[in-house]
């Protein structure tokens, strides 16, 4: 056995080869093509010319429409992330700390939304906030309003839909880091004279920050890359940066501009991931799968 251990073992390399080929061919090479295509020139609908020119980049950098979209996307991603953290922290804390016998049930319910179709979960908000939705139905039944109140197809409903879909990622990540904390630490702080709030603030909260950061990263990046939710729950002016890509590629068939916008989104969200991994490493992200 000692003999085989010192020799170079080919088996892991063989086992990894299919995955490497797949990711290289389907992710790495296509990403470089996005960059190359961003210098091409769009001639007509679905027709482009091989070129090395900066027209697409110039348009992106000078047109206020695109700046507005970038700004709006960052803003919505930020607000959705903060709200998801505010909504998610206490439930995660509750699940981690409860003495409830059927804790598994709470955990199961947390994973359940992942199994329900994304588009069903998204459109379900039309049933809640829409003109024929539950809230308007209730208000009219109670006689509080005659006319339905408009709550749909605006920035609010888009954000509600995004939070609803991404909240489980946040709760799960916070829960995982809370669950890993030694349960004697908080009582120890208490015996040393800390109030419950101090014990939480000085011990538990700092130790749960990695999970909070991992959840926030996921929610921010997932929101920043969305375009389907605004299409379903938003009005004409509620678009994210992903919608510009969708319009360029699917509607206008302007491939070079679509490539330019895609590369921009990749750099924007990629730099968030890079900053995060400088501080936290990427290990925390995989813990939620344990």
């Amino acid at each position: 056995m000692a003999d085989t251990a010192t020799k170079f073992d080919k088996r892991p390399a063989l086992l990894l080869t299919p995955a490497f080929i797949a990711i290289t061919a389907l992710v790495v090479i296509p990403m470089s093509f996005i960059l190359v295509y961003s210098f091409y020139e769009n001639v007509d609908l679905a027709v482009d010319r091989v070129a090395f020119q900066f027209g697409n980049w110039e348009e992106l950098l000078t047109d206020g429409y695109y700046h507005n979209a970038i700004w709006k996307t960052l803003k919505i991603s930020f607000v959705v992330t903060v709200l998801a953290a505010v909504l998610g922290y206490l439930p995660a804390y509750f699940i981690a700390m409860t003495k409830f016998r059927h804790k598994w049930l709470l955990l199961l319910l947390l994973i359940l939304p992942f199994w329900v179709s994304f588009i069903i979960r998204t459109l379900s908000w039309i049933h809640i906030l829409g003109n024929q939705g539950a809230i308007n139905g209730l208000l009219q039944w109670l006689g509080l309003t005659d006319e339905p109140i408009r709550m749909m197809f605006n920035e609010f409903s888009v954000m509600v839909g995004l939070i609803h879909v991404f909240l489980p990622y946040m709760i799960l990540n916070i829960y995982v880091s809370l669950e890993g904390i030694d349960e004697n630490l908080e009582p120890a702080a208490r015996t040393l004279g800390a109030t419950p709030w101090q014990a939480f603030k000085e011990v538990t909260l700092p130790l749960s920050l990695p999970g909070l950061a991992a959840g926030s990263l996921l929610v921010f990046v997932l929101t920043g890359g969305s375009y389907v939710t605004p299409l379903i729950l938003g009005g004409p002016s509620d678009f994210l940066f992903g919608n510009l890509i969708y319009d360029a590629v699917v509607t206008e068939l302007n491939w070079p501009m679509g490539a330019t916008l895609s590369f921009t989104l990749l750099v924007l969200l990629g730099s968030v991931v890079v900053i995060y991994s400088r501080f936290m490493g990427l290990n925390q992200l995989s813990k939620a799968f344990g």
Binding site: I34, I245, A259, L265
Partner: peptide
């Protein structure tokens, strides 16, 4: 981002 992956 999935959108970028798709376009690429």
């Amino acid at each position: 981002p999935e959108t970028v992956l798709a376009v690429g």
